[in-house]
Design a binder for these strands. Structure first.
Lengths: 207, 207
DNA sequence: ATATTTACAATCATTCATGTATGTTTGTAT
DNA sequence: ATACAAACATACATGAATGATTGTAAATAT
């Protein structure tokens, strides 16, 4: 029975893959560990060996991916800050392009956004998502603050409102795309959306 | 025990109110009818008398409110169509103002957006939400199509992309507002967002 | 070569939500 | 006055999911 360490790691991965599928199909609360085990070709014992409970499986899935806004800011930091708004724009578009081609990330995002309940007393997985989102907002804020200091932010936008606007649009775009079963071209719509938004945030460009 | 018809109607409302609270606190799947009954001061028997099951309670809650985009379009239809884009803009802002002051609608929306799982084989309640959203998108499309026919749509926007953009931004705005526990001024951010977006959709205004 | 630990499978007990069935009281019609 | 139906409460039966325990074969350490 006992397999080698690589075998164990593989079953762990198989469990996670199966969990992503089952969660995606039935929602998190609608998925039993029994179903996941059966899909992965193991018993619940294997799952309980690798993970404490269902919540920890969810956490493991979440820790595998990065929120799109994280990638945006990483991109900005990586490429310098001479034009913060332009970097946000460019980074956002690149993130969308990457996401549009990565089915695994799409599934995990769909689980987090559409198949996971955010309630008052949150699971630690949901809590992690929220805090990650909040941290990301803070970073966005800083980037826009830089634009403001360089006097490139249009006067009708405040720093906070601009950061919120981008955050809401990006998250809404993703959620709607996944909810509609990818019924519209993500990159196409997203690019127009982001460019229009960021455009209106540039001093002298909006109306 | 048996009360008059008005009494019965009142308990029905009390059940719905309790359900909104419990759903909001624990999520839909995390809420048992027992909890709801206890909060409402009745037993599960009363709930099963008025509703078939938990899904029907959810449906009843949903049927009480209108999606914000519905209100937007109703506003547009009600006020004529001479400037479709302007009407979308105005209507959206008004909807946000109304929502910002109606706590009950906020709770129900939060339940639908954050406390309800959208999976592959959907509950009828989730299905109703999705179809309502889709219908609303169709109406938005028609309004923007009118703008396009009047040659007032900026050339960089297609009709579909514009409708999607507005839909995503509005839904994202609401979701983020509710998820963040109303941590930012909804109307303020929303107004800038919508005005910027619609502004960029006006021929000769965007860049 | 043996002991020990790993990586599971199999079984079990418990909880919990649901649905149903039945009982009970009180309006309401006749 | 009586019969019936509405509006619940109470009790029960069921199934599903969970967490815990135990068993066990193979890998690894000694």
């Amino acid at each position: 029975m006992r397999r080698t360490k690589e075998d164990a790691a593989r079953t762990r991965e198989e469990v996670l893959t199966a969990a992503a599928e089952i969660f995606y199909e039935n929602g998190v609360s609608g998925s039993s560990l029994e179903k996941i085990a059966k899909r992965a070709g193991v018993t619940r014992g294997a799952i309980y060996w690798h993970f404490k409970d269902k919540a920890e499986v969810l956490t493991a899935l979440h820790s595998e991916i990065r929120l799109p806004q994280e990638a945006i800011v990483d991109y900005a930091i990586e490429h310098g800050h001479d034009d913060p708004l332009g970097l946000i724009e460019q980074g956002a578009v690149e993130v969308l392009q990457i996401l549009a081609e990565d089915e695994h990330q799409q599934r995990v995002f769909a689980i987090m956004i559409l198949g996971c309940e955010f309630t008052e007393h949150l699971t630690d997985a949901a809590q992690r998502i929220i805090t990650a989102n909040d941290e990301m907002f803070g970073k966005l804020q800083k980037l826009i603050e830089m634009a403001h200091e360089r006097n490139t932010l249009a006067p009708l936008w405040t720093v906070d409102a601009a950061a919120r606007g981008i955050q809401c649009s990006m998250n809404g775009l993703l959620a709607e795309w996944l909810r509609s079963d990818k019924s519209f071209p993500l990159v196409d719509v997203g690019e127009r959306l982001i460019r229009s938004l960021v455009g209106s945030m540039r001093r002298g460009e909006g109306r």
